[in-house]
């Protein structure tokens, strides 16, 4: 009787994440994955129906963990500055601790496979963020703006710093290490830019 080998499943999962991040969805195949794991293709098909099934399950797993991490200690009732700071802390912690998973979650979320990520968790996450933003607007802490503009301004700078960190260098190849101090300094500028009272000056 063939039983589950949890170590092998873990190896497949971790290697698949790495391959997806390094080669993208186009470069990903079951054959390549089996080769990279040093297991037979047949073993891979025992655990997954096909490539689509594997990516969907991976997206579900990684996306779930990512969303849980983003909502940890966060509440839609938080004041705007406090809530965004919590988001930056959660996002940076997850990214620094699990850089490949964070990148993989983004790749899958923005691909056709994104639809199969845990819908319930995604809904909880979207509802929490929408309520948080609406509360901030109602309290006069934030100007209403298109969601794309909001996301770019609020999280764009954070992900740029994290990308520099994962590259190990910033502009012109300058050595770069992400620090909490720099994160908070950048966050202050983002929050000031978004504050309605500052923009009126």
């Amino acid at each position: 009787m063939r039983g589950r080998d949890l170590n092998k499943e873990r190896l497949v999962r971790d290697t698949a994440i790495q391959m997806l991040v390094e080669q993208g969805l186009q470069g990903f195949s079951m054959n390549k994955l089996a080769g990279a794991c040093n297991i037979s293709v047949a073993t891979l098909y025992i655990y997954y129906k096909d490539k689509d099934d594997l990516i969907r399950k991976l997206g579900d797993d990684v996306g779930s963990r990512h969303m849980d991490a983003l909502l940890s200690g966060f509440s839609p009732e938080m004041r705007f500055r406090e809530g965004i700071r919590k988001q930056w802390e959660n996002r940076s912690q997850f990214y620094l601790k699990y850089p490949l998973e964070a990148m993989c979650a983004e790749i899958i979320r923005h691909s056709p496979y994104g639809e199969c990520m845990d819908k319930k968790k995604l809904r909880v996450f979207k509802d929490a963020m929408s309520a948080f933003v609406q509360n901030a607007i109602d309290r006069g802490e934030l100007k209403p703006m298109p969601v794309e503009a909001f996301w770019s301004i609020v999280y764009g700078p954070l992900y740029t710093l994290l990308r520099f960190h994962s590259q190990g260098s910033s502009l012109g190849g300058r050595k770069f290490v992400f620090t909490k101090e720099l994160m908070l300094q950048t966050l202050e500028m983002v929050l000031d830019a978004l504050s309605p009272s500052v923009s009126k000056k």
Binding site: M30, N31, K51
Partner: peptide, 8 residues
């Protein structure tokens, strides 16, 4: 799996 070269 027709995406795979071995058509598994």
């Amino acid at each position: 799996d027709q995406q795979d070269s071995d058509c598994v």
